[in-house]
Design a protein around this nucleic acid. Structure first.
Lengths: 212, 212, 212, 212
DNA sequence: CATGAATGAGCCTTCATTCAT
DNA sequence: AATGAATGAAGGCTCATTCAT
């Protein structure tokens, strides 16, 4: 029992170290020796837990995705309204990214463009995550909160695409500012997309301005 | 002179072959030998033109970006109105991607996530391209065509992010359908962002028209 | 005491399992882990009894050779005549091989060609076994049963060489038929060597000569 | 042309060196580095000619077997009579072994007991060699030179088995004496097997004894 | 202009073996 | 008595790269 715990902890530690080194240097540029050394273990020890270097890479997202999933499921129960749910979902995603930049770099810079990874079980959890977004969108469309004449696929693509674009830029620029600073302005843009303007009787600002 | 021409042609051919092989197999998984063989040349011949394998990779975008730039500059002169220009710009970008999928795969799946590439001269042309988009946006804001209360940076991020997201998905799914089919629905979504709610009762343009 | 018995039994079991796995896969291709797992024990447990993997390999023949020796000694007492003894000896050797194919494969395919093994104590028992054959031969020569103008060393080499050749072929072909089927025809050939042409109706020429 | 020659020479040199090192240390105990160094080349250079270490091992017999084959075919044409042909065949085999002890050690100590090798094309040439022996035997049986009541398969097994047994012993003992010294006494034994005793001038000893 | 020949450098991976418990 | 955890040491193999011709 205690042993199992210890093993799990060691495994997670190796995964964390691997994420860090992969994030810094890229997959091919990283050697197992580096990871092992950084984890205070021998090369062979890494292979106790991960059959290959690639397997180690592909194992990085699992725990993170599960955690993100759980957090999300918990919080979404507290939120009412599709737009609010989308807000919460994207917020949590960005928050998780900002708090786990190594994992994020591995995910967005290494794994997401890897054909082999996409055929992996590990990738399923990523697709599952997208389903949550889809559910929010369709919920919003049904409830009338979200503009029904927007193609939901392209809406999701825009939401996720822009969010990841911003995160990738942030990563590549060396994570200079707080990633969360980008959230509200980004979501503002999204809101323009999402929301029907039923409550907006016309184009308030412009009309008002014009009327002035 | 003729020799120069020949050399240029050979160089371009190698670049095209390299793009193709890199796109299919990824950078690390591709060997210089494979590229050389596919180009009907010897390994050493590749090194006549490109000092390293990485240099070969980084050399792929130049011609493409120049061509895209030229095309864009030509066409944008024919188009009036910021939204129309954005439409044309994104259309041409997507068209170029759909017509040059190998280059696109190299650019979006390999280069865009490569920190070293970003510090390259070659990357400057990509940033220059983005400036065109930025110019369209600021032009639109100035002319009142584009909603001024949208942060231009996040607007661009959303436009480019969603477009690339769609293209990357298309690439990873094996380029099944015609990429251009995605353009109009995608741009529809973008329009919702860009435009001052024309469909809303009392939309800006209408107000303007009405006011005139 | 009981513990000793248990240990002995465990040791023998490991030896049997090792023989089986070595026979199937070869020495280098077999890992201690495989043997341990097949024996239902841990790797470390194997090292309780055998100091190294090679030591385990070299330990395989001992019990077998002892058993063969004992059986042989017992049976040879019941047999009279050098040729009959050779017959019994070779028969028992082949029988033992056919009934213990794993041991046989280890002995003939792995150990007999191993220089290090030859310097081992374990190899002494194999040489001792050959002495039995030698004794039969010299007994036969002395008693006049065996042709005295055959060099005893080459006679033994031929007997053992042909027998092992047949067994090795049998092993390499996957032990298809019953090995014992080969015994009588093989021994027939040997008899031609050993015996003083009993089937020849007298020694024609010489007798003729003598008669002259 | 000259280049091809050079390559061939280099390849043969590597094969010779490999045979030597394999013969001395065994296959698993030998590293490619050792062979490369002994051949005055780099590790990678060895892989220019041989795709794997095993492939290098399996490539050793080809040229030798071809040479042996050619020599044999040439000489057998000069020899009349099945027994004489067998004599010549076995003589040349033993001579080749004695003159190429590295190859012989590789063949008899490493390859002949290797299941993977037996399924190789290279092994075919070894089986072809045996066919020459078979042909001599059946020729002798037909011509009446060889005792027809000996099973040809077991006769061959005895001839080859005893010859190889002697060679293997010679190798394992460190090649102390001239291997060819063993030929005549060994063949003497074989003669006893092979020959019908019609022309044999009786059984000298027995007759003598009988006469006494 | 073009290349065949050659290699240095390095990494992933495997296992026999050890030892604390 | 038995083992799980841990590793040191080593080796096969790959390639980007160079250079004489």
């Amino acid at each position: 029992m205690v042993v199992k715990k210890k093993m799990e902890a060691r495994k997670k530690q190796i995964l964390a170290v691997a994420a860090k080194v992969f994030a810094e240097k890229g997959f091919q540029e990283t050697t197992i020796s580096e990871i092992a050394k950084a984890a205070g273990a021998s090369d062979a020890f890494v292979y106790e837990y991960f059959s290959t270097k690639e397997n180690l890479l592909f194992s990085i997202p699992r725990d993170h995705m599960q955690k993100l999933h759980e957090d999300l499921n918990f919080h979404l129960k507290l939120v009412r309204g599709a737009v609010n749910k989308l807000h919460a979902t994207l917020y949590m995603q960005l928050l998780y990214y900002s708090e786990n930049p190594d994992f994020t770099a591995v995910l967005l810079l290494i794994l997401k463009n890897n054909r082999k990874f996409i055929d992996t079980d590990a990738h399923k959890e990523i697709r599952d995550y997208l389903k949550i977004v889809d559910r929010c969108i369709s919920e919003g469309v049904e409830s009338g909160e979200i503009n029904a004449d927007i193609d939901p696929y392209y809406l999701r693509a825009t939401l996720i695409g822009s969010l990841e674009h911003i995160v990738i830029n942030w990563l590549l620029r060396g994570k200079p500012e707080n990633l969360m600073d980008a959230f509200e302005p980004m979501f503002e843009v999204c809101l323009k997309l999402i929301q029907k303007k039923p409550e907006a009787p016309g184009c308030p600002l412009l009309c008002q301005k014009m009327s002035t």
